[in-house]
């Protein structure tokens, strides 16, 4: 039962990741930017982030069949790790940007400036991040 749920979940999730990856890839090549609600695709490295997301989605999709098998699970875990690399580096970049003050200001950022660094819109990987944590739960539940 749990397996079936996980498979369905990652099929849907994988498809979403895959399409966002393709979107980011195309927008990256075109050198444009795109904002929709809290989602934003823009900036340097969109191309690379898009390529990686594409493979993340692909790995998720190819892992859903017989997910409980260790090699399949490894693909799933690796997909999540790749997603965490992009999202993690984005969060790290947000932190490093939020702390120092602006050009003509003091050493440390103002409180408003600090908070605004964390406000939306976010890149796709960051929005996808919470949903990928299911992998952790799955691995943990499987060990037991």
């Amino acid at each position: 039962m749990k397996n079936k749920f996980a498979s369905v979940y990652f099929s849907i999730f994988g498809l979403i990741v895959l399409s966002l990856g393709i979107a980011e890839l195309i927008i990256g090549i075109a050198g444009r930017s795109f904002t929709w609600g809290i989602l934003e695709i823009s900036g340097e490295f969109s191309l690379w982030k898009g390529i990686i997301l594409f493979f993340v989605g692909f790995f998720y999709l190819s892992s859903v069949k017989n997910l409980n098998e260790i090699h399949q699970l490894a693909k799933n875990v690796m997909a999540s790790i790749m997603l965490w690399i992009i999202a993690g580096m984005q969060i790290f970049a947000m932190i490093t940007e939020s702390i120092p003050g602006g050009e003509e200001e003091g050493w440390i950022n103002t409180w408003e400036g600090f908070l605004s660094a964390y406000s939306p819109p976010y890149i796709p990987a960051l929005i996808l991040l919470p949903f990928s944590l299911v992998t952790v739960y799955y691995v943990y539940a499987r060990e037991k």
Partner: peptide, 21 residues
């Protein structure tokens, strides 16, 4: 290879953010 791309991307992104900070 996709994993390597992700790792190298992480490498570069960390480098840029850390040095920029």
């Amino acid at each position: 290879i996709p994993i390597a791309i992700a790792v190298l991307y992480g490498f570069w992104a960390f480098f840029v953010a850390f040095a920029g900070f």
